[in-house]
Design a binder for these strands. Structure first.
Lengths: 234, 234
DNA sequence: TGACAATTCAAACGGCTGTTTTAATCTTAC
DNA sequence: GTAAGATTAAAACAGCCGTTTGAATTGTCA
């Protein structure tokens, strides 16, 4: 076991390595199977470490889970950048960027998609321990999307209406994550991985913009009518 | 234990009762926690039965799960009726009925919502054993929705486009199921149970109809342009 | 090199899981 | 009433889980 590594500065890195490998393997398995169904033996095996390594480097399975989410969160910050495009771009492009970043963050294979998958799991069945971190991720993104929606609906739109529309858009995106197993089974000829993201983005943006513009037009019409009525009444 | 029940015809019903109570308790727990996280001890306790009862009346936990889904499926047929309203009603009403039935089937509390919750679980992580039954439920409903979408988009819409739009509608509905824990946490002032269904239906239908009509209008315009071009070319 | 701390390892622990066993109880029919 | 079958009950089983233990190994520094 002890081969060609003596008093080597690389070793101090190697020491940190086990801890780091555990976080990476943990993120992978947690995202794949969820907190409960992920076993420490599976994680340690993928990390090439002993079963006791988790309890040595972290306190327990739960702390490793926390570390994995924290790590994924710090790695995935770039997606947040992609989501919040300069506010002076056209709403079309801004919505497209948001939807694309969110879809990519969940459908990609490998490391970059941990965060999206972990957050999606926390949405459906929160472990409680990390609702703060989830909220630090979910809420800002939701605010970005709300800003885009508000810019389409116009300044007269109520907060409740903006929230509902934002949820409709998020729902369309998350559908391809949560229902993916069923989609793959029901439509074997279609693809639902990263290679399909472009097409999905195109549809979701088109669908949602038509909906938003339609709602905006209806609102404007009803506001004109209201103004006319109240104007005469006064 | 043996009290006032002797040679009573009710007893033969009581015998069937244990089996039936197991199915009901099983459906409840499976819908609540999923197949893996549901324990036979929990199910038997809620059914007021011994631990060995599951292995006596059914072969094992998996067979009980199958029986529970089958039972929920037969009970929930009425929702399918609600979904498929007479094809000559206005698309507005038909879409509203579909969305409402689907939402109710998942958000309701108690027995009637088992089916919806169980199917939602199978969508996200199929147990494999019952993909047939899921398909018997999911595919017909999807076809109903596709019919409604087609009637809005017009006869010229492609199958792929209809599928995408139907998924956008289903995604909006399922969002309130999968992301419910997060919604409750993030918006404590709002309600996301059966009492909120009416409002959710109203928004989803409005949002989706605007989207569909917008897409239909765009399609019609582009088809007119194509017809004009090819017409002159000939 | 030798003492000391940091890390790894195999093994075992207690707890919970689904399932099986064996005996007790109840139901039915003669 | 009694024998035969159906159902229930308590107890134990093997297997996997997260976690702990204590010794062996490795790295660090004088």
């Amino acid at each position: 076991m002890a081969k060609a590594s003596r008093s080597n500065p690389v070793l101090t890195v190697d020491l940190e390595r086990t801890r780091h490998r555990l976080v990476e393997a943990g993120g992978e398995v947690f995202a794949e199977k969820g907190f409960k169904d992920a076993t420490v033996r599976d994680i340690c095996q993928r990390a090439g470490a002993n079963v006791a390594a988790i309890n040595y480097h972290f306190r327990d399975k739960q702390s490793l889970y926390a570390a994995a989410i924290q790590y994924a969160h710090s790695c995935a910050k770039r997606y947040d950048g992609d989501m919040a495009t300069p506010p002076k771009t056209s709403v079309d492009l801004r919505l497209r960027a948001f939807v694309r970043a969110m879809l990519m963050g969940m459908m990609e294979d490998g490391k970059p998609a941990w965060h999206g998958k972990l957050i999606a799991r926390e949405m459906a069945e929160p472990t409680g321990v990390l609702s703060q971190i989830v909220m630090q991720t979910v809420r800002p993104r939701f605010l970005i999307l709300s800003g885009i929606v508000r810019d389409v609906l116009g300044p007269g739109a109520s907060d409740a209406e903006i929230r509902r529309c934002a949820r409709s858009i998020v729902g369309q995106v998350l559908f391809y994550h949560f229902a993916k197993p069923m989609l793959v089974h029901a439509f074997p000829d279609e693809r639902f991985d990263a290679s399909a993201v472009d097409g999905l983005v195109e549809h979701i943006v088109t669908f949602s913009l038509h909906a938003l513009h339609g709602i905006a037009a209806t609102n404007a019409k009803s506001r004109r009518a209201t103004r006319k009525r109240t104007g005469r009444a006064r």
